[in-house]
Amino acid sequence: MTVIPFPVPDSPDDCEATSRSGDRPTSHAAGKNTRGRESITMQLLRIYADAMLNDPNHQGFTDEEAMKAAGFSLEDDGHRRRCSTLRERRYIEQWYVNGIGVERLNERTGKFRIVCIVTTSGIDRLWGRT
């Protein structure tokens, strides 16, 4: 596991619009209206970073675990899509131990899910360096 040697900033204004090119016009409009609140995607990224920085034994999160840790509803807040966005941007990545991708059993679904950790690019994003 990579240990990041600096704290994660607390920036309520770190809320770049995160609508995707294929989203409906209403999503684009809402994405532009984020002043004073942090996007779900950025809150999730902060959860990944905080966990790694505050617990040297942290074992990463599945998408669902990250959503729960952030206090979001699994049904309403699109955890797979939000975490997928973080992976696409390379802000989180699957955790590997001895060259093997870590997966964890999801008790709710009975299926194995990949476990991810924050990347240095994710930390840079939180710091506003990207």
Rank of each mutant, 00 (worst) to 15 (best):
V102R: 15
W95D: 00
F72G: 11
L105H: 07
A70I: 12
F112Q: 06
H79W: 11
R87S: 03
T85E: 10
A66D: 01
R87G: 01
G71S: 15
K68P: 03
I114Y: 14
N106E: 04
R104C: 02
D63P: 00
G110L: 04
R104Q: 08
E88I: 02
F72A: 13
E64L: 01
L74Q: 07
K111F: 04
F112P: 06
D77T: 03
R80Q: 01
V97A: 15
S73Y: 14
G71K: 14
M67P: 09
I117F: 02
N98D: 13
V115N: 10
R89I: 01
R90Y: 01
W95M: 13
W95V: 10
L105G: 09
R89E: 05
A69Y: 07
Q94T: 12
R80Y: 06
V102M: 15
N98H: 12
S84T: 04
G99D: 15
Q94M: 08
D77P: 01
R108D: 03
D77N: 15
K111W: 03
E64G: 10
A66W: 06
T85W: 06
R90A: 04
C116G: 05
R87Y: 10
S84R: 08
D77Q: 02
E93F: 03
Q94H: 05
V97W: 07
S84H: 08
C116W: 09
E88N: 08
C116D: 10
V97L: 11
V97Q: 14
R108A: 10
G101C: 09
K111G: 05
L105N: 07
R113P: 00
G110R: 12
Q94D: 12
K68F: 00
E103K: 15
E93A: 10
L105T: 02
E107S: 12
N106H: 03
S73F: 14
R90V: 00
I92Q: 04
G99V: 14
I114A: 03
C116F: 12
R87M: 01
A70D: 13
I114D: 13
K111R: 07
R81E: 00
R80T: 00
M67T: 11
R104K: 10
I100P: 08
K111P: 01
K68D: 13
K68N: 11
I100Y: 12
D77L: 12
D63S: 05
S84D: 04
E64V: 07
K68M: 08
L105M: 07
A70T: 13
M67F: 14
N106A: 02
I117K: 06
E64K: 11
S84F: 04
G71F: 10
R113Y: 02
I117W: 04
R113C: 03
S73D: 13
K111Y: 12
Y91W: 12
I92P: 11
A66S: 07
G101F: 06
L86A: 02
Y96D: 05
